[in-house]
């Protein structure tokens, strides 16, 4: 591949994959927890949490990116706290791109996982309880495996969203080649300079290939899992 991609383009592809994978994996535990809360929890402010999770889906991505800049920037209240206590910096780093992608993909992930948790037959969990499993074990060996297809779907959706994220990322961490320039940003840059059409087309084709590959992989995994969890 490196024969027909310039080093800069290759960097953008690699960066995009790293950012999307990081976003997907880092948001998974939070996504699971929030989905579980929304599916099973009964608490005050549940609809508020639901709305907050879905916000990035409705807001213009630029707005989300700007809010991230305000909150997680070097001077922002959360950004400052994270830097001082953990040494984590988001602004104008690839980690910031991953954060923007994770936030944008989060509602999709939570939605898919939540639906699959709600679809789990509670009677099976009750049966597991009568067989001596405490609630933690019931979750691990009954609930979690049964909503595995939903978790996989949520991860793939989050990954796909992260691969395509543009507005929030460019607003939050700008468009720095080698650091925050993901595939969409690189394509955008190509379209802004004369003679960039061929580069834009190359990256577009790669973008399509990655998306199709992700979709194909999710289909294969869903089929594997689905065969195991044949519906009774």
């Amino acid at each position: 591949m490196s024969h027909w991609l310039t080093p800069e383009e290759w960097t953008a592809v690699r960066l995009s994959l790293v950012v999307a994978t990081t976003a997907m994996l880092a948001s998974l535990p939070f996504g699971l927890a929030v989905a579980l809360l929304l599916a099973r929890g009964r608490f005050w402010g549940k609809s508020l949490l639901d709305a907050a999770v879905h916000l990035p889906l409705i807001l213009p991505p630029v707005v989300t990116g700007y809010l991230l800049l305000v909150g997680f920037g070097r001077r922002g209240p959360i950004g400052q706290f994270l830097y001082e206590w953990f040494g984590i910096v988001f602004s104008f780093r690839w980690t910031g791109a991953a954060l923007a992608c994770a936030v944008m993909g989060f509602p999709l992930m939570v939605r898919a996982i939540r639906l699959s948790i709600e679809a789990v037959d509670r009677k099976l969990e009750a049966a597991a309880g009568t067989l001596g499993a405490n609630p933690a074990w019931v979750f691990l060996v009954v609930t979690l495996p049964l909503c595995l297809p939903g978790i996989l779907a949520g991860m793939i959706l989050c990954f796909a969203k992260a691969m395509g994220e543009f507005g929030a990322t460019i607003t939050f961490v700008s468009n720095i080649p080698g650091e925050t320039q993901t595939l969409p940003s690189a394509i955008y840059t190509f379209t802004q300079v004369p003679g960039g059409e061929t580069g834009a087309m190359r990256l577009t084709l790669i973008s399509i290939a990655i998306s199709v590959a992700a979709l194909f992989l999710s289909e294969v995994m869903a089929r594997l899992v689905g065969r195991r969890i044949a519906v009774e």
Partner: peptide
């Protein structure tokens, strides 16, 4: 006692086998 500490075997109307 919570159900999991009662040591009772429970057979339901529908079998409730774990499909996975």
């Amino acid at each position: 006692l919570p159900p999991h500490r009662r040591r009772l075997g429970y057979v339901f109307q529908e079998a409730r086998l774990f499909p996975h």
